[in-house]
Write a protein that binds this DNA or RNA. Structure first.
Lengths: 253, 253
DNA sequence: CGGAAGATTGACGGGCGTCAACCATCGTGG
DNA sequence: CCACGATGGTTGACGCCCGTCAATCTTCCG
């Protein structure tokens, strides 16, 4: 069940029953289960499917000749890996499982069937693609301009809010199943420094992080630390004029 | 005349006469001319057009509350600013002119007319969009994992190859109309350090940079310095099976 | 219970930022 | 044609943020 994807797309616009059924049907084909640290797709491969994450976390990454690794983005449940990838002949990066991952392999034909018949879903997938691009741009800002403290705080804010958008938070806490090495590879920091900065955030009461559970007692405070502006996530139902149930645009005054 | 865009799209697939005419017609509407350092669109604005750069350079950027600026990407002639932006309600970043810029404002209707009638162009614009995303990912890697020297060398390699793809290089040199402050804002380095690294590259004979002219006597050598792998630019006519003149897929022999 | 993966700590050093001064270049107007 | 101011480039001094290395501790899982 792609409930996380549906929930995410409904951050953009409300879907009708048929839209949801089509998504369920599309996501039920070709289920896959990969173990932690396995590669789902490798740089140089020919893209054959769109992968829809159903459970677990994965990441895009690149490894340089000198062995250093950069995590380019995180995938969580509800995320689609490259919905329009078929135009390219060859992957320029790898996608690997962080935790055990359950995902659906969606064929090109199934994607076309879905989008041909469900224009509202098509628009919502467009929105998803554009938000993904916006996240990538924000990572550029994060790596280029923020200090280690701001950078990690920013990443934690983003991940928490994205998890909340797919229904995977529990009050002010969520599961964060990544190692400090992963956080370092994503933020361009060494694992040692990640450790120190996390302790600093803990000492300041900005976060609690124990086991794989992250708690953010005061999200606004953490956003202030991070210079975090959530506008790039475009989460305020921007496509409400497309709502399946014909919501009236203006609010009564 | 959008000759740079046409030339770029033909890195992906060859276009027919009608395709090119449609592009010319689309680009001839609503010409604009902005001075250096003027904003073309600001964070918070509602996107109304797709901007096609005809002459000059621009950039995407964000400014943080603390005043620091990150250049998120460079736009050069032939580049489209956000071909699918209409799905979003509000810009999450700004676009500013670096040099005086001549560009075409393409309306939503004009974009739809173009893509409805010219599927080969549509595919090529898709490819352009995906390459733009790939560039953004590579910038993430650049900022996260490369040293200042590698980082600047990588940026120069990328810009040179992109300029070459639109016909704006002259042998081993090109115009690079950006200041060292701009290079710093794009690479997350201070202008002072940019200056030192450029001198290091000059001293090693890897580049010549005088006035606004960049010369790269040995591009492969600079790529080695930069840990540069051009695969993310997807420039080897990946859509050749769509060629307007029906090129046969296999090569003889 | 044992081994591996992950987290933590300390010592040390270097890459790169900051500050501040000075030089070079260029467009503009008198 | 040159003066001049603004913008951009260059240099040096200084120091801190964060990387590296290496040891140790904790957690987890079979």
């Amino acid at each position: 069940m792609p409930q996380h994807l549906i929930r995410k797309l409904e951050q953009f616009t409300r879907l009708c029953h048929e839209d949801r059924c089509a998504l369920v049907e599309t996501a039920n084909q070709r289920p896959r289960l990969y173990g932690a640290h396995q590669d789902i797709i490798r740089e140089g491969d020919t893209p054959e499917h769109v992968n829809l994450i159903l459970d677990g976390w994965a990441c895009r990454y690149k490894t340089l000749e000198n062995g250093r690794r950069q995590i380019i983005s995180f995938f969580m449940p509800g995320d689609l890996c490259d919905p329009h990838i078929f135009v390219l002949r060859e992957m320029d990066h790898s996608i690997g499982a962080i935790t055990p991952v359950r995902f659906a392999e969606i064929s090109r034909a199934a994607m076309m069937r879905l989008t041909d018949r469900h224009p509202r879903v098509t628009r919502a997938l467009w929105w998803e693609t554009l938000v993904t691009a916006a996240i990538q741009r924000e990572w550029t800002v994060n790596l280029g301009q923020r200090t280690a403290l701001e950078r990690l705080a920013h990443l934690l804010c983003e991940l928490f809010i994205r998890l909340r958008a797919v229904g995977l938070t529990d009050g002010d806490s969520c599961l964060l199943p990544v190692t400090q090495v992963d956080l370092g590879d994503a933020t361009g920091l060494s694992n040692v420094h990640v450790n120190r900065v996390l302790q600093e955030l803990r000492a300041a009461g900005q976060i609690a992080l124990k086991g794989k559970r992250l708690t953010i007692p005061d999200l606004e405070a953490l956003q202030d630390v991070a210079l975090f502006n959530p506008n790039y996530l475009h989460l305020d139902r921007e496509g409400r004029h497309l709502d399946a149930n014909q919501t009236v645009e203006h609010t009564p005054g």
